[in-house]
Simulated scan of single mutants.
Amino acid sequence: MNNKTPLILLAAGGTGGHLFPAEALGVELMKRGFRVRLATDARALRYSGLFSRDTIDVVPSETVRSRNPLSLARTGLMLAAGMAVAVHLLRKLKPAAVVGFGGYPTLPPLIAARLLGIPGIIHDANAVLGRANRFLSSRVSAIATSLPGVLDRDPGLASKTTTVGTPMRPAILAASAVQYATPESSGPFRLLVTGGSQGARVMADVVPPAIEKLEPSLWGRLVLTQQVREEDMTRVRAVYDRLKINAELAPFFTDLPARLAANHLVISRSGAGTVAELAAIGRPSILVPLPGAIDQDQFANAGVLSDAGGALRIVQSEFTPDRLAAEISALAAEPAKLAAMADAARKAGRLDAAERLADLVVKVAGI
C-alpha cells in the first residue's frame, strides 16, 4: 500500500466504547484497500487492537469535567492546543475524510477538518447524541447513528443522517456465530456480570448479596463470571467462597466477546457498545443504566433492548439484592423465556454496520 492510496483518519476517545467501533470500521476500510490512522488521546496507547503505536496520532484533549472557571479554562487551553496539533497533522497527512466516534478527543481533528475543507463524518452509538457529537453535528458533512430516530426532531440534521448500526469488531462477529444454548433445568446456569470498561462498584455492592438470597439449589448450578474492581475483590470473593459458588473474578476480561457468547444471562451497565454487542450476539440481559448522566443515554440505550423484549431494564434506585435475586430466580426457572429474550435481542442487532458505515465514508469522501 503506497502513500497515493487514500487515507481515512479515524478520531475517537480513548475508551472501548469509542475505540471498538473505530477499529471495526478500520478493518473494513483496510479490506477495501484504504490506509487508516487513528487520532485519539493518550489513553488509547494502552489499546492493543487494530492500531499499532505507529498508526496512532495523539492529539491533546480534555473533557469538560465541571463548570468551575479554572477547570473550564484548562479544558479550553487543552482543546486549543489540540486544535493546533490537529491542523498540523491534517496538513501533513492529507486524509480523504475524518471520521469521529465521540468523546472530546474527536473535537480537534473534526474542527480542523472543517477549517481545511476535508469531509467530516461523525458516528454516534447512543440512543441520544453525545455532547461532543452534538457540538460537531452542524459542522460535519454527514452523521451516522447506530439507532433509528435519534435526530428525527431536528430536520436540519436529520437530512444528513444515516442509520448504520454499531460497527462490530471481529471478535464480536465471531461470537455472534455462537448459537444461544438454552440452560437445562438442572444443568449449569452461566451468569456474566460486567460493569463496562471502567467496572462498576454497584455490581460489587448488589450482586453478591443477591446471589446469597437465591435458593441454595441454584447456588450449585451457578457458574458465575464477574468483573470486579481490585478494591472490591476481597469482599466479593469472600461471599462467593462462603456460599461455595463456582466463580471467576477479574478486574478486566480481554476475551469479553467470547464470554458474552458463552453465558445464559448477562448483568451489565447499558453503555452503547455493550447494548449493541448483546444485540449482535443475541444474549438476554439485565441492564442497569448509569444514573445521573446529563442526557440519560444509558437509560435510552437499555430501552432499545427492553422494548424489543431482549432485556430487563432496572434503574439503579430499584437495583436491590431482593429485586435482583427475584429476577435471576424467575429467569433461571424459565429457560424458554431466556431463549425468547436471546432471540429478541439478536433481532435488534446489526452485523453489517461496518460495511454500511464504510459505504457512507466512501460516498462522502468521493473516493
Rank of each mutant, 00 (worst) to 15 (best):
M1L: 11
N2L: 11
T5F: 12
P6E: 05
L9H: 03
L10R: 09
G14D: 13
G14V: 08
G17I: 06
A22V: 05
A22L: 04
E23C: 09
E23T: 07
A24C: 03
A24D: 01
G26W: 15
G26Y: 14
G26N: 13
V27W: 09
R32T: 10
R32D: 01
R37F: 03
L38E: 03
L38Y: 06
A39P: 03
R53C: 14
D57L: 12
V59Y: 02
V59F: 00
P60I: 09
P60Q: 07
P60L: 11
P60K: 13
E62L: 09
V64C: 07
S71P: 00
G76D: 00
L79D: 00
A81L: 11
G82H: 09
G82T: 07
M83L: 15
V85Q: 14
V85S: 12
L93Y: 10
L93N: 04
A96M: 11
V98W: 12
F101E: 03
Y104P: 00
T106I: 06
A113W: 10
I118V: 15
I118L: 07
P119V: 09
A127G: 11
A127N: 04
G130D: 08
G130T: 11
N133L: 01
V140F: 09
S141H: 13
S141M: 12
I143K: 14
T145P: 03
S146I: 02
G149N: 10
L151E: 05
L151N: 11
S159E: 14
T161P: 00
V164G: 08
V164P: 12
G165Y: 05
P167F: 10
P170N: 04
P170E: 03
A174W: 05
A174M: 08
A175D: 04
A181E: 03
A181N: 06
T182A: 15
P183V: 06
P183F: 07
P183M: 07
E184D: 15
S185C: 04
T194D: 01
G196W: 02
G199K: 15
M203N: 02
V206A: 00
P209F: 09
P209Q: 10
S217F: 11
L218R: 02
L218S: 04
W219G: 04
L222H: 01
Q226R: 13
R229I: 03
T234Y: 15
V236C: 15
A238K: 15
I245Y: 14
I245A: 00
I245R: 12
A247S: 02
F252R: 07
D255R: 14
P257E: 01
A258R: 14
N263I: 00
R269S: 02
T274Y: 10
P284L: 15
V288S: 07
V288R: 06
V288L: 07
P289M: 02
G292A: 10
F299T: 15
G303Q: 13
L305G: 07
V315A: 11
S317P: 09
E318Y: 14
T320L: 02
P321C: 02
D322I: 06
A326N: 13
E327W: 04
I328S: 01
L331D: 04
L331M: 12
A332D: 07
A332R: 06
E334F: 04
A336G: 11
K337N: 04
A339C: 02
A345F: 06
A345R: 05
R346G: 06
K347Q: 14
G349C: 13
A358H: 07
V362A: 02
V364M: 00
I367G: 04
